[in-house]
């Protein structure tokens, strides 16, 4: 019976996490550490519930998600367009393409000091960091997708009279779509990470700020609660939004 339960992946996961929480709760009850240093799962759950009830977490999530969506949207548009251009032009590839590659090695939070000097302690500075987080990943992925367009599609399309912008919009872009989506997924996670880092660094209402508030108030259960929220959002976006789209497209494109 026990061995059969263990054969089920979901059951294994549930048991593991239940055990983890049980150990955590036991350690918290043992009283080795003060509650403000080592919060109990129950305490964290209460903080979570309170945070959602009094709206602070809701505001935090909304604020962060808004920044993320706007910033990510901007970088998706710029990234895809510039990737399409760089991928088909040797001159652009040698110039802007190599610049993009170089900049990509820079962790995007390193743009924050520059953004602060240019835009001050403003939303714009925050957006700038998010955009820089996702932009380069989306650009390089799009560029790679365009370069890897199977010659067969180009041959077939040229043959049927496709040229110019129609060739781009109706053949090269969709052919590159699987790689573009992978790039967007990667870009999203970069943007998410850099936004959290940026929000930690100055007062801003977002989730990162709530995390920092927990620290300042010595409220460890808030810190852990916000961390859980951040993990949950990351998981949901990755598994519920990007992964299914990615799988569907790859299947349809015959790449699986």
């Amino acid at each position: 019976m026990v061995s059969r339960v263990f054969q089920n992946t979901l059951a294994r996961k549930l048991i593991f996490f239940a055990a983890l929480i049980a150990v955590w709760q036991t350690l918290a009850w043992s009283g080795w550490w003060a509650e403000y240093i080592f919060p109990s799962p129950l305490g964290v759950a209460q903080t979570l519930a309170r945070g959602f009830q009094n709206g602070t977490f809701v505001v935090g999530i909304a604020t962060s998600m808004q920044r993320l969506l706007i910033g990510f949207g901007i970088s998706a548009i710029i990234g895809i367009l510039s990737g399409l251009a760089i991928g088909r032009s040797k001159v652009l590839d040698e110039t802007i393409g190599s610049l993009v590659l170089g900049l990509q090695t820079l962790p995007s939070i390193c743009w924050l000091p520059l953004a602060l000097l240019w835009f001050g302690l403003s939303e714009t500075a925050m957006l700038f960091v998010v955009v820089m987080g996702a932009l380069l990943a989306i650009t390089t992925a799009t560029e790679a997708g365009v370069k890897n367009t199977p010659p067969l599609y180009l041959r077939a399309a040229r043959n049927l009279g496709a040229r110019g912008w129609k060739l781009y919009a109706l053949v090269i872009f969709p052919a590159a779509l699987p790689e573009i989506i992978t790039g967007m997924k990667l870009g999203w996670s970069f943007a998410w990470r850099s936004l959290m880092a940026a929000e930690l660094l100055y007062v801003s209402l977002g989730l990162g700020h709530l995390l920092m508030m927990g620290r300042e108030l010595n409220d460890m259960s808030q810190v852990v609660a916000v961390m859980l929220v951040i993990i949950a959002i990351g998981l949901v976006v990755d598994r519920v939004i990007f992964a299914p789209i990615e799988t569907r497209v790859r299947e349809r494109w015959g790449l699986i």
């Binding site: 077939a156 049927l160 969709p174 052919a175």
Partner: peptide, 12 residues
């Protein structure tokens, strides 16, 4: 118009 061995249909 050319027809290829691998059909070369557009999967999208």
């Amino acid at each position: 118009v050319m027809i290829f061995q691998s059909a070369a249909l557009f999967p999208w």
